[in-house]
Nucleic acid binder design. Structure first.
Lengths: 204, 204
DNA sequence: CCCGAACGCTACGGGACCGTATCGGCCAGG
DNA sequence: CCTGGCCGATACGGTCCCGTAGCGTTCGGG
């Protein structure tokens, strides 16, 4: 009953989730087939059907297995924390395999409730990191208390995700800084004097 | 050789494009099948194959057939023109059938060059409307000449498209105004004094 | 050491689409 | 009127994928 007692099951399971993530990233959710997952992972199709109820469940677990959780910094500077937060989430989450999966996941989420919940959870989770940073700034008095936090998060995340998913361009540090500075300027937080778009603190 | 001499061909063609758009909006590009298009449109599968080389070509033409082109206003007020522009494109383009097609199109565009060009063209076209408005404001002196127009468009369009496609929420007039005002404040253009997010001019 | 549980392999029937061929019917131009 | 060209309907072989069954094998705990 203990978790660590399984060994070859566990290895097989991981191989299946890996192959699923790879396939979804390559050909999308729809074109991902159990047969292909089986042949890539080296796990028999029978075994996959024994362990996963449906392709959707499989995809959900595969996404969870490769989701990155950023470290939310607390430097005392709202601007630096936001830049760090969005550099982290955007780079680590939307680059690499998960980035290639997102569009297909969001598309499939329109029709499958299971995947719909998954995408919503992922989106909410990402937003919560930024929300935390902003609420801390409000508590410090760096932002007015009546700021619409949800709106601010949308103003910050929107251009970055749009750049990545719709325009299919790299999200550079300069873009992140420019977005953060633009939004903060509306609330009276000025960007650093040296250079218009500022430079990212080296720890990213 | 004249266009108006075809009649039943023309009707059939339109029925096929309509059915294709409906299907893509409902079930996505991948699950859209020629058989189903045939049965919905009442046009024989044979005829469809005679007139369209591939499903991708068919989808491209279907999208073109239902693309809305907004009227770019020129009121002399940058703020009003931007709000009008983005209200128009976001509402008319991303609501309705085209809105339901976009995610699936963008996903499919990752793998099919034909659809990739289509999505890119659509995106560029939308951006050009905003670009026009902004460049006119620069010419008037309402904005500094060294403004990064491309960045501004991204800052404006990003939150709206993100709200629509990723969060699956309605893009309200209030959101459009809030986004425009936030971005313009960075460049010294102040929102109207009455109310924080401003009210949309009635002509939208 | 040994037995049971889980796995790998192969094979199967069924279904969905594809793209094409065949043929009969209908509409338009000459 | 009548003929050529386009359309509609049907049918077909082929391919891919599904989900399950049967059976031999292998690994791990007792």
């Amino acid at each position: 009953m203990v978790e660590s007692m399984q060994s070859r099951s566990q290895r097989a399971r991981q191989a299946v989730l890996d192959a699923t993530a790879d396939l979804v990233a390559e050909v999308g959710v729809e074109r991902t087939t159990i047969d292909e997952i089986a042949s890539r992972s080296g796990v028999a199709k029978t075994t996959i059907y024994r362990n996963f109820a449906s392709k959707e469940v499989l995809v959900v677990e595969a996404v969870h297995a490769c989701t990155y959780i950023p470290v939310v910094t607390d430097t005392g500077s709202l601007r630096d924390d936001l830049i760090s937060c969005f550099s982290g989430t955007t780079k680590a989450s939307y680059d690499g395999r998960l980035g290639d999966m997102m569009l297909s996941l969001m598309d499939a989420a329109q029709r499958d409730p299971e995947l719909g919940r998954l995408v919503r959870a992922q989106t909410d989770q990402r937003r919560r990191f930024a929300t935390t940073v902003i609420e801390r700034a409000i508590a410090r008095g760096d932002l007015p208390a009546d700021v619409d936090v949800d709106l601010v998060v949308t103003l910050l995340a929107g251009p970055l995700i749009y750049t990545k998913l719709v325009r299919r361009q790299r999200v550079t540090d300069e873009l992140v800084a420019a977005v953060v500075d633009t939004v903060l300027s509306r609330y009276g937080v000025a960007p650093p004097a040296d250079g218009q778009t500022g430079t990212l603190s080296s720890k990213v």
